[in-house]
Design a binder for these strands. Structure first.
Lengths: 200, 200
DNA sequence: CGGGAAATTGAACATTGTTCAACTCCTGTT
DNA sequence: AACAGGAGTTGAACAATGTTCAATTTCCCG
């Protein structure tokens, strides 16, 4: 047998390891991910982890890949429930906040993980972030039809980043905590300002 | 001798360790901070690090404390050079971007560092972040005099977080890179929208 | 059933944070 | 000057953790 056939036992073990790692990060955060804990939970030997994944960093990227998929689903569902561009952008922002609130550790891992010095994030994983921006581009393009497609992509990324920053710093303990309902209100006020401008 | 007298040798050694750690983070990033490297650079024994600091996390907080001080200086200088609230907010945002650009690793460490699970960030360090928000509150309060002081503090933090998010994601390699001049232009466009709304 | 390839194992190794008993050095006293 | 006591410093030792790889097991096919 060559190797990564879909139904092979090799693939099944890789899946178990991935899910064990995901559970660890979900429950205890990225910093608490230990190779031995993962393989214990997955019911395999320590070395098997390195058979299934190049190293712990690639395992984390695997977990983040799944999280990105779920985040994308949540955002898409929220966006589809709105019937005009403004409502879509609002729905996206609140769905983003909701996802972060309900999956704090997995969501944080998306942005907290760092590759070793000098090792770039693989292209396939960078590409997985594209749908997030594209979901912002669609409604934003309707609100600001004058923007060229390059500018639209950049502007969508800026808007995404701003919302992301607001949510991220609100959920960290570096600043004094911001109660969830106040965060929602702040996001609303922020979007009101951005949307007034984008539409004008 | 009791201990931390200002001119004592004990304090001088602590300072050397702090500066060695800062240089390491500046040159190689937070992930590359090693106790042995720091003490080698500082010219002392491994154990001395734990005499001067409780552990590596507290050493990082010490470095971040210094970085926050320099960031605050840079922002204050920029803000003082502007003569109206709008110009002040623009100056603050661009000074923030400039600082991040010129001190990427030290700036990243401010937000990338995490305490061990269950250990809170000490209050004295959380308090050190307050001036950042207060510098936004001053001009924002002039632009939106109707805001109560609680709301003003929250709104200033939201604006800070949005700018922070835009700069942070632009400087990471998770999304495709955004050239520095385009980042500056995006910050300008973003602030234009926010300011139009705050003033109106 | 036997052979060979592939997968799995876990002991061993390298690196790193942290501790602590021994040692050094300074200071005040006689 | 000699000494005692204590504070400061040291670095060997320990524990935790990521990673490797030779030996073992498993699995499939002729």
């Amino acid at each position: 047998m060559a190797n990564t056939g879909a139904g092979s036992k090799r693939a099944a073990l890789k899946q178990r390891i991935l899910e064990a790692a995901e559970a660890r990060i979900r429950d205890h955060g990225l910093k608490m991910l230990r190779a031995r804990d993962v393989t214990n939970d997955a019911g395999c030997a320590l070395g098997s982890l390195y058979n299934a994944f190049e190293d712990l960093d690639l395992l984390v990227l695997g977990v983040n890949s799944r999280t990105l998929g779920r985040l994308e689903s949540a955002l898409r569902t929220a966006s589809e429930g709105a019937d005009n561009p403004e409502a879509q952008l609002r729905a996206l922002a609140h769905a983003y906040r909701g996802f972060a609130n309900e999956n704090p550790h997995l969501w944080a891992a998306l942005f907290d993980h760092r590759m070793p010095e000098g090792v770039p994030v693989p292209d396939w994983h960078i590409d997985e972030h594209r749908p997030l921006i594209e979901m912002v581009m669609a409604p934003l393009g309707q609100l600001a039809p004058d923007l060229g497609s390059d500018m639209l992509a950049i502007r969508a990324r800026t808007l995404f980043s701003a919302v992301h920053g607001i949510v991220k710093l609100a959920l960290e303990d570096r600043f004094v905590a911001l109660p969830p309902d106040l965060l929602a209100a702040e996001l609303d006020a922020f979007l009101a300002a951005q949307l007034r401008s984008a539409a004008g």
